Amino acid sequence: MIEVVDAVKTFTVRRRAGLLRRARTTVRAVDGVSFEVARGEFVGYLGPNGAGKSTTIKMLTGILTPSSGTVRVCGMDPARQRTTLARRIGVVFGQRTTLWWDLPLRDSLALVRRLYRVPAGAHRERLAELTGLLELEPFLDTPVRQLSLGQRMRGDLAAALLHAPDLLVLDEPTIGLDVVSKATVRGFLERLNSERGTTILLTTHDLGDIERLCRRVLVIDHGRLAYDGSLERLRATVDAGRMLVVDLERPGPPVEVPGVAVERVDGPRQWLRLPRSVNAAAVVAALAARYAIADITLREADIEDVLARLYRGDHSYEGDPLAR
């Protein structure tokens, strides 16, 4: 569905170099990225701000042309066949709506049907299905400008899917949504992928979306692909350790256990970082022998911690992090 081979995108930036002079600097926003996405996959595309995520998305959708390398989506060159490709993909940018601001949502979706030349019968069928799945009925006749952020996002998803695309590209689709709206969108995307087989590429800073939805993640940093694989393998690749939360019967100084660092103390509760090389049972036994303990909880590292260490290059994986 997606094939990217050694894609490079450079930009020329002018910076002040004196009172009246400007110096030109070439920035490689995407620097030799290669990956493939097969039909039916749900892939998360992650990276810090400025890493090259949005630039990659714009090359995939034909908004930008690669400086070098090859990008093909649905077997087409996105930049040269942008109009044809638009009928095969759906795109949602969380901070930009594709709906008409002053029109009711129903009328906006009718205009989308005209743009994509969807037959009237197919439109009625898809609209009815999307209305049910995304719970659009209560606000179909409400002007878009009066919709809440969560309602507008569901409307944008419906607009992106009315023409039954093979590929759905999402850029921050749950940004700013409340818990209920976020759960609705996540559940819908999960069903769309599992039941309809729609290929989905998701970029987001909400790592809850990734953990709930994606079986595979790509991590880009400084324009280069830093990781390609599953979340489980990412945790093994980057040793962010585990967190042992210890509740003592009374407050005290940091506990002392060889090979274990105390990261935080708050009254009787202490947080201990355990590297994967350290046996958790042995640590618990050592603590129980020396301290009066009320409770102990062992937690896996948060995906935020794992990614932060990967961005810093602080990982202990022996081998190629891109090898899947």
Rank of each mutant, 00 (worst) to 15 (best):
R24L: 09
A281N: 12
N193L: 01
T65F: 12
V144C: 07
G132W: 05
R309N: 14
L140G: 09
A281T: 11
E137A: 15
R186D: 10
G155C: 07
R309L: 14
R88Q: 15
R88G: 00
R145S: 13
V238P: 04
A285N: 12
F93H: 13
L225C: 09
G313T: 05
A281M: 06
A38H: 15
T56P: 12
G197L: 01
T237R: 06
S181H: 05
R312K: 14
A308P: 01
D305C: 07
F11D: 09
S68N: 07
L170N: 09
D320K: 06
D305A: 09
R152D: 02
D206G: 01
E3S: 15
E3H: 12
E129N: 00
G313W: 00
L136M: 03
E249G: 14
A160F: 06
V169T: 06
Q270S: 06
R14M: 13
V262C: 13
L202F: 02
L20N: 01
V260K: 05
A158Y: 02
S194K: 14
F188C: 12
F188H: 09
R233T: 13
A226F: 03
L213W: 07
T26P: 01
P268M: 10
Q146N: 14
A236C: 08
L272C: 12
L149H: 02
I220P: 11
S108M: 05
F93G: 01
R87W: 06
V91E: 08
L310R: 10
R269H: 02
G208R: 11
V245W: 07
E137F: 04
R324L: 12
I210D: 05
G319R: 05
A160I: 04
E3T: 13
T25I: 13
V217L: 10
P268H: 11
L274Q: 03
P138S: 07
V118H: 09
V43L: 13
E172K: 11
A79I: 01
T131G: 15
Q146M: 13
E135M: 03
G208Y: 00
L103F: 09
A323T: 11
T131P: 03
A79Y: 13
E232F: 05
G69P: 03
M243F: 12
G90D: 05
L64I: 00
R186H: 11
V13Q: 15
G223L: 03
A164L: 11
A282E: 15
R72C: 13
K182Q: 14
G94R: 06
A281G: 08
V179P: 01
A240Y: 12
E135Q: 15
G32D: 11
T83M: 12
L105Y: 02
M59H: 05
P253K: 02
V71N: 06
V118D: 10
L231K: 01
G62H: 04
P119Q: 07
E36D: 15
T65G: 07
S277L: 04
K53I: 03
V283H: 06
Q146S: 13
E3G: 09
L307F: 14
G259M: 06
D77A: 04
V37R: 10
L192D: 10
M1A: 14
R39E: 15
G94I: 08
V169N: 04
H315I: 03
T237E: 02
R212Y: 10
D228W: 00
D141I: 04
L170A: 02
M153Q: 15
G229I: 05
G75F: 00
R88C: 04
G150E: 03
V71S: 08
T55N: 09
A7G: 04
